[in-house]
């Protein structure tokens, strides 16, 4: 089996490659094309309509009766909310994930394995189930709501169906993706360097900012990709904990293929979502390269 000839290699790789290209690549190409077309009366798209950027214009503007373009913030707000939610989810995951990864790396070998298992179990649990669990906790007649209402002096508290509920659900869904990459960075670290820092008179803050955080940086960047990307494209969390009131881009896209039956607009939204992700990925990659240069 050694030194496979290029032809044999092609034969082995081609089937998987063709399947992924046909069922992921081709659909995305069709989607890009549909985003330029007009909506259809029955199946959602008029295939033979003239291509235009009208669907992209609709993302921010709407045409008034007399033809002037007015700024329409409805969809912009949803796009901004999605980016903000994904951003805050990532920040919260870093703030929670860094101490957890540090703590894990201070355990003994056996305890570490168990800690990794404890962090991975929720990640293997179905996403719907995890978000449903929060629906039960935060619901109106639940214990947490009663407690919040008893403590909070300024009128009734609504815990569910708002941005905070979505944020809690997103952090809950993606936290392991942040903890594990940071932890795997720490696992290889020679902790005597931290001792050396203390010996050389560093205080805790300096040890943290000069040793621990630079060390965690590759893990934080990898984890940020793994958290930000799925948060931005998430559908389930906002569908369950946002209750249809607080939408994210994923939900808006789904609506265009469900009730609204406006495929071209949904396709345009999808293209924008992909573009936003690309932007973040490239940004993070550039940042990582700069970090890499420093270390």
């Amino acid at each position: 089996m050694s030194a496979a000839s290029p032809l044999r290699r092609m034969g082995l790789v081609a089937p998987a490659l063709v399947i992924v290209l046909a069922l992921v690549g081709v659909p995305l190409a069709i989607m890009a094309w549909v985003s330029l077309l007009e909506r259809g009366a029955t199946i959602g798209v008029t295939w033979d309509s003239a291509p235009s950027f009208a669907n992209y214009t609709r993302l921010a503007w709407e045409e008034d009766f007399d033809g002037t373009m007015l700024l329409n913030p409805t969809y912009l707000i949803i796009q901004l909310r999605s980016v903000a939610q994904a951003f805050f989810t990532t920040v919260l995951c870093v703030l929670l994930g860094l101490p957890v990864a540090l703590w894990m790396s201070s355990l003994s070998k056996n305890q570490r394995d168990i800690a990794v298992l404890l962090i991975t179990i929720p990640f293997w649990t179905n996403l719907l189930v995890r978000n449903y669990a929060w629906l039960i906790i935060l619901r109106e007649d639940g214990a947490v709501s009663h407690f919040a209402n008893a403590v909070w002096p300024f009128g009734p508290v609504q815990l569910l169906y708002n941005d905070t509920a979505i944020l809690i659900g997103l952090v809950y869904s993606f936290l392991p993706f942040m903890i594990l990459p940071i932890y795997s960075g720490f696992e290889k670290f020679d902790w005597r360097l931290l001792e050396a820092a203390y010996d050389l008179g560093a205080n805790r803050r300096q040890a943290l900012t000069r040793v621990v955080i630079p060390l965690a940086m590759p893990g934080i960047i990898a984890g940020s990709m793994l958290v930000f990307i799925p948060s931005l494209g998430s559908f389930v969390t906002a569908a369950i904990l946002g209750g249809g009131k607080s939408l994210m881009m994923g939900n808006l896209i789904q609506l265009q293929f469900g009730q609204s039956r406006n495929w071209p607009f949904g396709a345009a939204l999808s293209v924008v979502l992909l573009a936003l992700m690309m932007l973040v990925l490239v940004g993070l990659a550039l940042w990582r390269n700069r970090q890499g240069g420093k270390i």
Binding site: M31, P230, A267
Partner: peptide, 25 residues
């Protein structure tokens, strides 16, 4: 080749799902 094979890991599932829906229709 590896980037193509691993693309489904990175692409947002909601986008790929609706795109596949359009292809199948």
């Amino acid at each position: 080749v590896e980037a193509i094979l691993n693309a489904p890991l990175i692409l947002p599932e909601v986008v790929v799902a609706v795109a596949t829906l359009m292809l199948f229709v």
